[in-house]
Simulated scan of single mutants.
Amino acid sequence: MALPAIAPYPMPGAADLPKNKVSWTPDPQRAVLLIHDMQRYFLGAFTPGQPPVTELLANIQRLRQHCTALGIPVVYSAQPGGQTPEQRGLQLDLWGPGINGGPDQKQIVDALAPSESDILLTKWRYSAFIKTGLLELLRERKRDQLIICGIYAHIGCLQTASHAFMHDVQAFLVADALGDFSLEQHHLALNYAAKLCAVTTTTQRLVEGLQPPASQGELSLSPQQVRSDVAELLQAETSIGDDENLLERGLDSIRIMTLVERWRRTGAEISFVELAERPTLTDWYALLSSATAQRTSHHAS
């Protein structure tokens, strides 16, 4: 009934992501970061200093720093130690008593120790929504997106993403900021989430997507970023030509609107009609550059 010893396995990356069914875009004004159960008891099942733990800790640190810098609330879930059988519930049958009553096992690992401004939720079941007040916290702060990282991917993280979906909260499961019992179960969680309840992404993509509004006259979109954003939505496995018709490649109206919303948050004044009428990478970057130049000129005058 105890946790299994977890053998090292390679952390999934961008090339391993399943195809997402939805194309939600993370927004600093809507998101909350959940660092799920990163306690010594659960990390103790992994081999220290080996993948996926090395990437897991580094990527969660990066997410936390980026979210804090953008004013995105950071929430930790942590299970209490020394639970009674009544508190433990059916988890006792599957996993035994869990964390002991001492001071060590229940602690968040030192590399991710919460700051005074972070929020700590006591967690009682697989899902971080059960008996925690997480949903109320989101609603009080008018947030409807949840970025999920931590352990274990196919248990608590996936259940939390599923509950988020059922409460109309957009969930983002960060594939390379999760840990699990095995690579197979890690992929199981990602595939289920992508098909039924969440967007699967990577730390790098999420950091790129969560950008503060650009200052007046500043365009933060490079041609490489424009191409990367389009390729992500198309799940493109082959290169996209600069002058290729993106509509013919499968870029539908929903995905175009996703790009409009994403690029507007970087300061780009662009419309759906403009993108739809000139659906090539070359035209789009010209439109973005032109809009920025006009705005800069108007601001200077």
Rank of each mutant, 00 (worst) to 15 (best):
A128F: 05
P26M: 00
L188D: 05
E277M: 12
E237F: 10
T160Y: 13
K21M: 06
V260C: 00
I151E: 14
D110P: 05
A177F: 10
L206D: 01
I155V: 15
L138P: 02
L135M: 11
G101R: 02
A111C: 09
D118N: 03
D243P: 03
L56F: 06
Q83C: 13
G82W: 06
L137G: 03
H298M: 13
V226W: 06
D243L: 09
A286N: 11
S182Q: 07
I270V: 13
Q145G: 03
Q204F: 03
P80A: 12
V169R: 08
E248G: 04
I6H: 00
D27C: 01
T84H: 13
L112T: 11
Y9M: 10
Q294M: 13
A15I: 07
Q145H: 06
V230T: 04
Q225W: 14
V199M: 13
A78W: 04
L259G: 04
H187N: 07
M38W: 04
P48A: 08
L90Y: 09
R30G: 00
Q91C: 06
P10I: 08
L134Y: 03
P279E: 11
Q211R: 01
P114F: 04
L90M: 13
D16I: 12
L247I: 09
T203V: 15
F165R: 08
R64S: 12
A189H: 10
P10V: 11
Q224R: 15
T202E: 04
A15Y: 04
P51G: 08
P85H: 10
L94E: 11
V260L: 00
A31P: 00
L120D: 02
E261L: 05
T160M: 12
P26V: 00
P4V: 10
L281P: 09
G81C: 08
R295M: 14
I72L: 05
R88L: 14
P213G: 01
L246S: 06
D243E: 12
P85R: 12
I256Q: 00
Q50L: 07
A164Y: 07
L120S: 09
P213N: 03
Q83T: 09
L288Y: 03
T54P: 04
T25Q: 09
L275T: 03
L70T: 03
Y41Q: 10
Q216S: 10
V226A: 12
A293P: 03
I35G: 10
R295N: 13
G133N: 08
N20E: 07
V199I: 15
A164Q: 07
Q61L: 03
A31D: 00
Q185T: 15
L188Y: 08
V32R: 06
L63Y: 02
V260D: 00
V230W: 01
L158Q: 13
R143A: 05
G101C: 02
L183P: 05
D242T: 12
W284T: 00
R278F: 08
K106D: 07
F46S: 10
Q211A: 09
D104G: 08
A14N: 14
H36C: 08
I6V: 15
W95Q: 06
Q50V: 05
M11K: 02
I60R: 02
A300E: 13
R64A: 12
I254A: 03
L146A: 00
P212I: 14
L56K: 07
S228Y: 05
Q79K: 10
E232F: 03
W95K: 04
D93L: 15
A236T: 01
